[in-house]
Design a protein around this nucleic acid. Sequence first.
DNA 1: ATGCCTCTTGTTATACTATAACGACGCCGG
DNA 2: CCGGCGTCGTTATAGTATAACAAGAGGCAT
Lengths: 158, 158
Amino acid sequence: MPHAFDRHDHGTCIASALRAAEETCDGRGLSLTPLRRRTLEILLESHAALGAYDVLARLEAEGFGSKPPVAYRALGFLVDNGFAHRIEGLSAFVACARPGAPHAPSFLVCRSCRRVAEEAIEAPLAPEAEAEGFAIERTVVEAQGLCPACRPHAKGAA
Amino acid sequence: MPHAFDRHDHGTCIASALRAAEETCDGRGLSLTPLRRRTLEILLESHAALGAYDVLARLEAEGFGSKPPVAYRALGFLVDNGFAHRIEGLSAFVACARPGAPHAPSFLVCRSCRRVAEEAIEAPLAPEAEAEGFAIERTVVEAQGLCPACRPHAKGAA
DNA sequence: ATGCCTCTTGTTATACTATAACGACGCCGG
DNA sequence: CCGGCGTCGTTATAGTATAACAAGAGGCAT
């Protein structure tokens, strides 16, 4: 499993993510329309988190609609179906690194270049939730900091 | 340590949090001004996360300024000094349950009543970050779901 | 083929969240 | 006194997100 911060064959990344999305859509009767597919491709171009309005600008430049709901709906579809994730700490979106497999994702988020490495981690609050009678539906686990590439030259924290 | 979802003496909660804030401010040469103190009190009234504009409305009704920076600055002061936390998943703020003690907080967040239980948890991504050469500066750990009180009568997930 | 239903994309308009930039005032040390 | 700093107030604007409605495409039962 290549990491966002490692050197890797990114073309393979993209191809396998698209294939997984196609297969999952087939399997569930979902339609990966041109808009949705293109939105996913835009996210896949890098491992960086993109804001909804960044995505929207790209879509508009390629002939899709220019209004926020166009981007938010496509992103919503991708997130709902596990092809992308929302990075809460950045109000931004990133392509899923493990599409197809259900998982509770967690992230290392670089505050300098916005690249995101997706990690697999066990739900960390499960015992506490159990003790309280709290029913967990979704977990957000994000570590913000500096990636290996940005670490040397980024300004100090905060 | 009483939990937000447990029955507990909330007056003690409030009093000890205020006292801890006063002591910490004394110790660090910070000033807990009327605005900042009142903002903290507003958050302490419940264990629920409040939006910045909810807090602002309360402050305005009590004679403080009415513009967003008034609330954001007071909340920023509280968050920066560990007297309150920002709940990323809600874009909202909650009083700290362990003021004074440095800690990497994590939260159980009820999507129905917005109450928040603060948990102590070890930084869960430390080994992964170490392996990647990623320097963690801050972690966000939030589990969203239904608290014991809301579980019976809330609508289904999502 | 027609009519109906659902899904998708597009729009307009608006709501919600957050910060930059500037001004006034009070306090305190020089 | 006065200069610097911190705080609180303002105006204005930036950034994020969704509600509500319109139009077209395709399936499918009649």
